[in-house]
C-alpha cells in the first residue's frame, strides 16, 4: 500500500517540504526541487515580486509543486492575516504557513497570535499550517481553530541544532490527530531521519539545504534521509532497553 500524507485535500507521497530563502542564486532552486523530490515549497510573501520577471521567485518553482506561501515578517495575527490575503489575491493558492514572530533575537514564534491567525484564516477557507513552539495545549487549540497540520520547531530557525525540542514533539505526535511537520532547526539529514523515525509526518528544511556547499546534493541527501526515517517508522523499530541484561538479577528469588 502506498504511504500517503493527506493535507488540505491533497495527497503527498514525498514528506520533505522545502524553504526557498537563503539560496545563493534563484537559478539553482529548480534543480534543488528536482533532487529533493519535494512536493511542497514555501515562499515568503514579503520576497515575492510579481512584477519582476527575473526577480519573481515563483517563476523558479515547478508548477507540479504545491505552493505554501508563508507570513514571514508578520509580528501579530492581524499582519499574518493581511499577508495571507495578499498571497491569495496574487494567485498563490489557499495554502498558508503562518509565521508570527515578534522576537528578532531568537526568531521564536508567538504561539498566541498564531492561534488567533489560524482561526481567522481557517474560517476564511485557507489550508492553514501554523509554525509554533511545540506545546500540547497550543496544538490542541490549533486543532480547534481549524489548522490543517501543526509545524513545531526542532530548534530556532536557521540554528541547525537539530531536535532540541524532541520530547515535546514526541508528545504532539502521540496526542494530536493532525499531521505533525517538524519545521526549523534541522541541520543535517540524520536529524531529519530522526524526526521521521519518531513518527513526524514530514519535515521542512531550508537553511541546511540552501547554505550547503552543494545545495542540490544536500537536497538529495535530505530526501533519502526522510524516506529512510519514514520507512524505519513504518517498519516499527525494536524496543530500546535502558539497561542490559543484568548478570546478577535482583528479582531472581521470585522464580
Amino acid at each position: 500500500m502506498e504511504d500517503i500524507l493527506k493535507i488540505g485535500g491533497k495527497e503527498l507521497s514525498n514528506r520533505l517540504f522545502l524553504g526557498t530563502g537563503k539560496f545563493p542564486n534563484k537559478n539553482i532552486i529548480p534543480q534543488v526541487i528536482k533532487s529533493s523530490e519535494t512536493q511542497v515549497v514555501t515562499v515568503a510573501v514579503r520576497r515575492v515580486d510579481l512584477n519582476g520577471e527575473q526577480e519573481n521567485i515563483l517563476n523558479y518553482i515547478s508548477k507540479d509543486c504545491i505552493l505554501m506561501p508563508n507570513t514571514s515578517g508578520a509580528r501579530n495575527a492581524e499582519e499574518a492575516v493581511r499577508i495571507a490575503q495578499i498571497a491569495r489575491a496574487a494567485g498563490c493558492g489557499n495554502w498558508i504557513k503562518i509565521e508570527v514572530i515578534n522576537d528578532n533575537k531568537y526568531l521564536l514564534p508567538d504561539n498566541y497570535e498564531t492561534i488567533k491567525a489560524t482561526e481567522i484564516l481557517a474560517k476564511d477557507g485557507f489550508v492553514v499550517l501554523p509554525y509554533v513552539s511545540p506545546d500540547l495545549m497550543v496544538a490542541k487549540a490549533l486543532v480547534d481553530a481549524g489548522a490543517a497540520a501543526v509545524m513545531p520547531l526542532g530548534a530556532p530557525i536557521g540554528s541547525n541544532r537539530g531536535l532540541q525540542t524532541k520530547e515535546l514533539i514526541r508528545i504532539l505526535i502521540a496526542e494530536i490527530d493532525l499531521p505533525i511537520i517538524v519545521d526549523a532547526g534541522i541541520g543535517k539529514p540524520s536529524q531529519a531521519a530522526e524526526a521521521m523515525e519518531m513518527g513526524a509526518d514530514a519535515v521542512l528544511v531550508n537553511t541546511a539545504i540552501a547554505t550547503a556547499e552543494d545545495a542540490v546534493k544536500m537536497a538529495e541527501a535530505f530526501n533519502l534521509a526522510v524516506k529512510a526515517g519514514r520507512l524505519a517508522y513504518l517498519a516499527g523499530p525494536g524496543a530500546e532497553q535502558l539497561y542490559g541484561e543484568a548478570s546478577s538479577p535482583l528479582t531472581d528469588f521470585l522464580r
Binding site: 545563493p24 542564486n25 514579503r46 520576497r47 515575492v48 515580486d49 515578517g73 499577508i83 495578499i86
Partner: peptide
C-alpha cells in the same frame, strides 16, 4: 552573484 550571493530587491510588502 559572482560572489556566490543572491541579490534581493524585495524583502517587504506594504500591508
Amino acid at each position: 552573484l559572482n560572489k556566490g550571493y543572491q541579490p534581493v530587491l524585495k524583502d517587504w510588502q506594504y500591508l
